[in-house]
């Protein structure tokens, strides 16, 4: 059993906040140090508790727009070792670009309903604590879809397997995690990764935490 990861939770909706807290505590892998209702309280709690990670709602009082993203940037600037997972009701890639505008490290963007898949949420917390990034699969799907439709897109040249690998890379998975998800050997995954990068005309990113940024930047361009 690993050391439990400590988090601070922020969501203005009481039922969601308490439900998530109970779920996380129930997992046994995460300790919730504090649960707060807005971005200002969140910043105070982070300063006080110095958690490993933060899980924050994207929309919070007072304007209910993108307070969560603004808070994430401030936390990452002040405490580079604290990872931030944004839970959002928007399945829109524009918010991901907004979140990642200063870099992808230690940041994750998940749709809110992922709290129902506790494993995914816990994995995302672990990834951001390790300085990596996670993007919700539904958003990666939109980006890939738009690219595949474009005439002359290099994505059309990828094999089905390579497309799978690209999808997992965009979601922020390590080669090991991709290998597990696709039941392949890690070396095979590595080969697919290299082939994919070559076909897209990208220099292969050995630095894993820069890989998501490279793939997303590529997918963002239409």
């Amino acid at each position: 059993m690993r050391e439990p990861t400590s988090v601070v939770l922020a969501d203005d909706h009481y039922l969601v906040r308490e439900g998530t807290r109970r779920l996380l505590a129930d997992s046994g892998e995460i300790t919730v140090l504090d649960a707060v209702g807005n971005a200002v309280e969140l910043l105070h709690a982070v300063q006080r508790h110095q958690p490993d990670a933060v899980i924050a709602d994207i929309r919070m009082p007072p304007t209910h727009r993108t307070e969560g993203i603004v808070a994430a940037h401030r936390i990452r600037a002040a405490f580079p070792h604290i990872g931030v997972v944004i839970l959002s009701q928007h399945a829109d890639e524009q918010y991901v670009f907004d979140l990642f505008q200063h870099g992808t490290n230690g940041l994750a963007y998940l749709l809110k309903e992922r709290v129902g898949e506790l494993d995914e949420l816990v994995r995302a917390v672990r990834e951001v604590v390790a300085g990596r990034s996670v993007v919700d699969p539904s958003i990666v799907e939109v980006l890939l879809g738009a690219h595949r439709r474009a005439v002359g897109s290099p994505l059309r040249d990828l094999t089905a397997r390579e497309l799978e690998v690209l999808r997992h890379m965009a979601e922020g998975r390590t080669n090991k995690a991709i290998a597990e998800a696709l039941t392949l050997s890690e070396s095979t995954v590595e080969k697919h990764v290299n082939a994919t990068f070559a076909k897209l005309g990208l220099t292969a990113e050995t630095q894993l935490h820069r890989r998501v940024a490279a793939v997303l930047t590529y997918l963002r361009a239409q």
């Binding site: 727009r65 993108t66 928007h90 829109d92 890639e93 524009q94 918010y95 907004d98 939109v142 980006l143 879809g145 738009a146 439709r149 474009a150 005439v151 239409q222």
Partner: peptide, 27 residues
């Protein structure tokens, strides 16, 4: 009302609409 229009502006909203349509759209 698409929230991205309020939060991120016209271009972002048009881009995300365009990505979801089954036809190539150059912006």
């Amino acid at each position: 009302h698409p929230p991205v229009l309020t939060d991120r502006g016209l271009l972002a909203a048009v881009e995300s609409t365009a990505r979801r349509l089954p036809i190539p759209i150059a912006i």
